[in-house]
Amino acid sequence: MIVTSLPYSSLVRPPLAVAGHTDDVLDMVSGTLSEAERERAERFTRKRDRLDFVAAHLLVRHCAAELLGARVRTLTVVQRCEGCGQAHGRPWLAEAPEVSISLAHTSGYVCAVAGFGRVGVDAEHATNGPADERLVELALTPAEAKLVGDDNRRLIRQWVRKEALVKRGELTLDRLREADLSALSLEDGLSITLEWRGRHFVEWTAGTVIASAVTDEPAKLRLLGG
């Protein structure tokens, strides 16, 4: 693959996060997946999972194109695992490697973030009810566990934040307890912004979905389809 940088405005735009329900994204966002992405999509046995994957990969192109002031069709999303060499792992743009991108999908909902500097995003469904004790033990510090109590939505909010940090490249799943986010609010809100040790979180909810994007600078958030 020949990598060439795209010409774009010298004005550095703030990070951008975009999200929406899968069906809305597929209706509103156009684009074409790479051959590797199409092959991965075809491996999903459930149509719903396949559509979530496709929508998230189209959305991250849309997000990056808007950030760069570029056309969606000029961008190639690449994923290549450093361990096994297969087409998965942290995504990047072949034509603009200086821009970081991240994407996430959970049943019926997708989100993406793009920015200059490190970025990460995650989304999960979170119902009311008791917290999973095993997940608390895996992911939370004692201070976080005390704040979460037995509230599943609070637990998932912390989990999503830490998954976003993993995708940003500064945590791993076996070291989640090394990041203490107990200083951050756990209250539900349609859209909130938070700062933690120089990282900026933008968080939002959509029905049962809790989502969080973390960036170097405050990010703009756009929700598709209302």
Score class of each variant (00 low, 15 high):
167 K>P: 03
180 D>C: 07
159 W>Q: 02
178 E>R: 07
173 L>Q: 03
198 G>L: 07
161 R>G: 12
179 A>L: 08
177 R>H: 10
185 S>T: 14
163 E>K: 07
166 V>T: 11
174 D>P: 09
159 W>S: 02
173 L>R: 03
165 L>H: 11
169 G>I: 02
180 D>M: 04
194 L>S: 13
190 L>Q: 05
176 L>M: 10
181 L>A: 08
157 R>M: 15
176 L>K: 02
177 R>S: 05
162 K>S: 00
191 S>D: 07
173 L>T: 05
178 E>Y: 00
177 R>V: 09
194 L>Y: 00
174 D>N: 09
173 L>I: 06
172 T>E: 15
180 D>A: 12
190 L>S: 11
198 G>A: 12
174 D>I: 06
160 V>F: 03
168 R>L: 14
166 V>A: 08
185 S>I: 13
172 T>Y: 12
170 E>L: 15
194 L>N: 06
193 T>F: 11
167 K>D: 06
163 E>T: 05
190 L>E: 03
197 R>M: 09
158 Q>W: 01
195 E>A: 10
165 L>R: 05
188 D>E: 14
178 E>A: 00
174 D>V: 06
164 A>F: 03
165 L>Q: 03
195 E>M: 07
189 G>L: 07
197 R>G: 03
169 G>F: 01
196 W>P: 04
170 E>C: 12
172 T>A: 15
158 Q>S: 12
158 Q>P: 00
183 A>F: 10
159 W>R: 03
163 E>N: 07
157 R>N: 14
163 E>P: 02
161 R>T: 10
173 L>S: 06
196 W>S: 10
193 T>C: 11
194 L>A: 14
176 L>C: 06
182 S>Y: 08
157 R>G: 13
185 S>C: 10
160 V>H: 03
188 D>Y: 07
165 L>P: 00
188 D>T: 06
186 L>D: 04
193 T>V: 10
167 K>I: 04
166 V>Y: 10
168 R>S: 13
195 E>P: 01
194 L>F: 01
193 T>Q: 15
188 D>A: 10
168 R>N: 11
189 G>T: 12
185 S>R: 14
175 R>Y: 03
169 G>Y: 01
171 L>P: 05
191 S>Y: 04
187 E>Y: 01
179 A>H: 04
164 A>H: 01
160 V>A: 10
182 S>I: 13
174 D>H: 11
183 A>R: 15
162 K>G: 04
170 E>P: 12
161 R>N: 12
160 V>N: 10
175 R>H: 06
185 S>V: 07
188 D>I: 02
199 R>A: 11
178 E>H: 02
160 V>W: 00
166 V>Q: 10
182 S>C: 10
166 V>I: 15
183 A>E: 15
157 R>V: 12
181 L>H: 12
169 G>H: 02
191 S>T: 06
179 A>V: 11
195 E>Q: 09
185 S>F: 08
187 E>K: 13
191 S>P: 00
157 R>F: 09
167 K>G: 05
171 L>I: 00
187 E>H: 09
199 R>Y: 15
196 W>A: 08
185 S>Q: 09
160 V>M: 08
157 R>P: 08
180 D>R: 06
189 G>S: 14
162 K>W: 00
182 S>V: 13
164 A>P: 01
159 W>P: 04
193 T>W: 13
171 L>H: 01
196 W>Y: 13
175 R>G: 02
199 R>Q: 14
196 W>L: 07
189 G>C: 14
199 R>S: 12
163 E>F: 00
173 L>K: 00
186 L>C: 05
177 R>E: 05
164 A>M: 02
165 L>T: 02
